[in-house]
Design a protein around this nucleic acid. Sequence first.
DNA 1: AAAGAATATGTTATAACATAACAAGAGGCC
DNA 2: GGCCTCTTGTTATGTTATAACATATTCTTT
Lengths: 159, 159
Amino acid sequence: MSAPRSNGSDFEAHDHGVCVRDALVSAEAVCAEQSLRLTPVRRRTLEILLEAHEAMGAYDVLARLDAEGLGSKPPVAYRALSFLVDAGLAHRIERLNAFVACTHPGSDHDPAFLICNSCGTVAEGEARDALAPSAVAAGFEIEQTVVEATGICPACKDV
Amino acid sequence: MSAPRSNGSDFEAHDHGVCVRDALVSAEAVCAEQSLRLTPVRRRTLEILLEAHEAMGAYDVLARLDAEGLGSKPPVAYRALSFLVDAGLAHRIERLNAFVACTHPGSDHDPAFLICNSCGTVAEGEARDALAPSAVAAGFEIEQTVVEATGICPACKDV
DNA sequence: AAAGAATATGTTATAACATAACAAGAGGCC
DNA sequence: GGCCTCTTGTTATGTTATAACATATTCTTT
């Protein structure tokens, strides 16, 4: 759905301007397709997450929105972020109480995250059935999964 | 290390009194072995989590401690909970900002949780290498994992 | 274009979760 | 006893998140 990416890792170098622009185009497409309204605050919130290219707290996002006159009260940020998460354009990182732009929106997915403790970069991968076996064994019906790992990314390891 | 359990699920019926007592014995053993001090507040905090048999917020735990004269200020609860988590006697559920007693302390493990949206029960399973493949592909060195699923447990599904 | 429905925003206020920092006490060890 | 370490008590504050209600915008229907 979005431009092809070399592999599943977000740790490699890439042209960030292109990556942001691509993602916005994808987002517009996703919203158009589902009759969702990508309003100025929502769009700018997504841009902020994309530009940061790492997880941001709601209040960090809010500070940026406020600086641009787009809203100054917590609900503004939380509503925009909720919209993006619901639309699959961003994800919430439970471990960090933070949000990150989705790196491959449009496709249904069960995201897993690799969070670097050193540089803060968050890479998105696939969690495909990470805990399906336990769930099936217990007769549990999964609705949503949270799969997050913290550690050291390749770039930071090489220093 | 603890008494054997029938399988990996915590959703089945069991003698809760026995389960709590067993867990406390295990906890004492673990602490003795590692020269950790299971003080009154810490021990009671563990008991509270065990008795609840579901995830509890730090302030819920604190309310119980307070009622028993064991402490009334947030740091009391947070310190006790941190101790238990560090000792492997309890786990933090990121998704819920809550804590749950470990159902098989003593063994090193990478816990995964199945959280029932209906009754709140939290079952603990193994996450073994849930995201090792993605991590290896990306050259990421995992330190800690968070694997949590929300959904409907067998008991609630049958209603 | 007007009316009505649905969606989005602005704002106040407060709830819920968490920790920094420092003082005081309890236990182990020489 | 004197020293050290770990634990507890307390104050204060920081951080994250949402309920509730008023207003405004956009979409749909007529």
